[in-house]
Design a protein around this nucleic acid. Structure first.
Length: 112
DNA sequence: GTTATGACTTCAC
DNA sequence: CGTGAAGCCATAA
């Protein structure tokens, strides 16, 4: 029993998140909040994003299929253009973007 | 110990 | 539909 005076959140959450993302079928996408909820982490959308940025280069999961609740790819300068790559990958899977780099979330959202 | 930041979400105006 | 504010967790300084 490891003495932890904190709430149980860490490797288990990361493993759950990776498992959920790995389950996303090709051509579908899921929001951070949705992934978090499926991973058993309601209200932990931010954790999903944060963890993803930590694991993206060393992990083998379709991280590009994870988008924000607005039905749009998270455009952030912190990723040095990684967002562009994400859009390109999604397009390659058959997802069509609008003029604002947005897609029909209701149509492409992954339903478990 | 606190403070600030970030691949987020949701509600209110 | 845009903006602001609160909530949440981990990391860095």
């Amino acid at each position: 029993m490891p003495p932890r005076g904190q709430q149980p959140v860490g490797d288990e959450a990361v493993a759950a998140i990776c498992a959920v993302i790995s389950r996303i079928p090709k051509g579908w996408v899921a929001t951070y909040g949705q992934v978090a909820a499926m991973a058993g982490l309601p209200r932990r959308a931010r954790l999903v994003g944060r963890v993803l940025q930590e694991l993206d280069p060393a992990i083998k999961i379709p991280w590009h299929r994870v988008v924000n609740a607005k039905g749009e790819v998270s455009f952030s300068l912190s990723r040095n253009g990684g967002d562009t790559l994400q859009q390109r990958l999604l397009k390659a899977e058959g997802i069509e973007f609008d003029d604002k780099n947005r897609f029909n979330l209701e149509r492409f959202r992954w339903l478990d």
